[in-house]
Design a protein around this nucleic acid. Sequence first.
RNA 1: GGAGGCAUGGCUCAGUUGGUUAGAGCACACGGUUCACAUCCGUGAGGUCACAGGUUCGAGUCCUGUUGCCUCCACCA
Length: 872
Amino acid sequence: MENMDKTYDPSFEKRIYEKWMKNKCFEAHVDPDKEPFTIVMPPPNITGQLHMGHALNQTVQDILIRFKRMCGYEALWIPGTDHASIATEVKIVEKMKEEGLSKEDVGREGFLERAWEWKKQYGGRIVEQMKGLGISCDWSREAFTMDENCSNAVLEAFVKYYKKGLIYRGSRIINWCPCCHTALSDAEVEYEEQKSNLWYYKYPVVGEDDAIVIATTRPETMLGDTAVAVNPKDPKMSRFIGKTVRLPLTDRTIPVIGDDYCEIGFGTGAVKITPAHDPNDFEVGLRHNLPVIQCIGEDGLMNENAGKYQGMDRLTARKAIVNDLTQLGLMVKIEPYSHNVGTCYRCGETVEALISKQWFVKMKPLAEPAIKAVKSKRTEFIPKRFEKTYFNWMENIKDWCISRQLWWGHRIPAYYCDDCGETVVSKTAPDKCPKCGGHMSQDEDVLDTWFSSALWPMSTLGFPKKTKALNYFYPTSVLVTAYDIIFFWVARMIFSGLEFMDDVPFSDVLIHGIVRDAQGRKMSKSLGNGIDPLEIIDKYGADALRFSLATGIAPGSDTRFTEGKIENCRNFVNKLWNASRFVIMNIKEGEKLEMPTRPTGADKWILTRLNDVIREVTVNLNKYEIGLAAARLYDFVWSEFCDWYIEMSKPALYSGDAKLHEHQIAMLVQVLTTILKLLHPFIPFITEEIYSKIYPDDILMLREWPSFNKHRVYRKEEGEYEGLRELIGAVRNLRNEMNVAPGKRISAYIATSDEKFMTSVAPYLDKLAGVGEIHFVADKSEVEGKYCAVVSRLAELFIPLGDLVDEKKEIERIKSEIAATEAVIAKAQGLLSNQNFIAKAPQKLVDGEQAKLDAALDKLEKLKDKLAAYEA
RNA sequence: GGAGGCAUGGCUCAGUUGGUUAGAGCACACGGUUCACAUCCGUGAGGUCACAGGUUCGAGUCCUGUUGCCUCCACCA
């Protein structure tokens, strides 16, 4: 048949992808006769290009979706990209900076034009990258978080939440990034440990010759202090309560209050309270009705409340204040101190706690059903331990700040009257104020990017429209994502789904790990250790990349990407290529390739093994144990199909007997095509390519998944051939140890209880162990001259090696085998003499031990005979 | 402070509900070029499964404790 190149070259991948696209293989449709299986892709940010994490994430999803599609589900995988409000805006601002432009220079309109241009460029590139990976998503449904339908979903959600009182606008203390110039949600703040100091200084008590020492890591916020708190139960400090202290560097005095927020025994026993710049202090301020004085502005600079420090940035002001306090003799001591500082997850700038008027989602009422949904297993996490993380977050959740002072994103559908200040929240802009008829202006801010992501499983299926697709495909089957966005995304999708669809967005959440570098470090831009999936695809092919990502992964665990692993997987793919090449080049014109009705012993062995593989791979894929499934296939294809079955097929193929040949090639084709199907979800390109060489008019990805066939399981033959493999291994070992030339064929005397079987496998002994000539004997007494013996459960082989036999070596070999056999006997006897074992262990195991013991005793006897013969 | 994970040959990892002699890849040693594949084939060496207890007929696997590494959450100034 058709020639295949000697070495696997993945350049056919593009052609195969086009074939799938042309045949609309990825498209799914509402089909009431079939059960849907749906995945929505976590939309990659349009900030740049795909990294290994995306490749892993998408490989996992593609494996699942291809598997389920072959299993007969109406399998829908919806692709898309995320506008990534803040992340993209940061990138665009950076790029504009290179041109010497700022956001203000180009204005809102101009900026948005640039953003859409960016989306077109990077979003398009990402799609091309995804196609290169071979993923089978339905591109006709490709979505973008800011396309028309997703935007409608956002409007619908915002307005509905607002009408229910679940969205409100208010002045609260929020996280502010002075660099991105926007509010952030709690989830968007990352804490990192920084070395700093703890400054101790005095606040003099008014009217007394006394002072309270406070300690702080942020002296610059003292200008916003409105109280000093001590614990009322603290015997040393409670006397200060009700007194007033002078706030140094200002002309203000502030009260000393009692509040158990101040912990006894910690620090100096007193803590300065700055409600405007610390969330805890803000709470204390509310309890004591303290004024709020903001001294740091949104630009990160000291403001008009900072007196002479006005205009300084935070760190400069800190130095100046420390200096001034020292000059005044108020500084007591400075200690080195490391503590966690909140930073912006996008730009890394230290975030500032500020009081600001923002929009919030009230979380408690939404969290409650979301917790219930997971507790009642409507949604399950795999692995389960992540449910704990989820509960912990949901149970301690605070209101979600959703407004961002950015331009790229969904503009908040709130309108304020220029005249009377009336607020209207509506999907469409009101022409005039319903109260006073004045002009209404839309809120300048946009929504947190995660607000739209939270609606993704619905909005991609048509929500807010009640589409047939939404009805059929929702709730989706499984969400596949890394553990780092459980809070950002997974949790928020769950409460949004429950709120708007009255149902969870997905039944399962499959959490995978992150891809690390060879040293186990996180791949990151700053370390420069990222590996570009595209380069790997260029060098090794997408299949090799996919297989290396799928091998050895376990739910929830990180994985390392190493050059060695990718090479190994490329070699595996090459192995499959060559095995297929062997099969295909041996197909003769006109041969029937259907499954033969009368399998031989070796056929029965491989069919039994194959059926076990089908069962295990299917079970593991259903359990999301992708790594186990991949490893099982790897081992089976390489060590059983290639190393044994193909080798065993050669005598028949080269026999010159046309009937034998046809039977053998049909078997090979049948086993191979089953293997291709099983491997297809993992390495779709090469399997499709090979399949097309056998069945040019067919498409593998649309074929049915193999099922376990109990009529093709032959345990007897399986056992016999496993025995044969052992025996051949033992002969090979002997040949090696005795330095028999690899090409040299040897003869053997065989003592066996099953002469018929041993006769039937004679060709294999010849081909695989170089035993060209066999003579059956009753026992060793019939063997003349020097020989070595191989004892196995099937037979005893006596191999005359003439002068090659080194008696001393042979005696050593026998002795070590006796020792090994005795160890087996000792263990089995130990177990079998233990009454508890007999009574409590499963019968199958007891029988197994007994059989093992009998075989070992028999073997030992023969070995001992042999040894005695030598030593005599 | 709270929660979770990991610890298996030189390296990277498998090992599912406890049950043969704990597996694989890489690396290593020895041997191999006609007949699919040197991106290959055969053989071999290498492990007290972190440590200490416990449960069990039986523990790499379950429980308790110890040590070391890692992650997430909280953020007490």
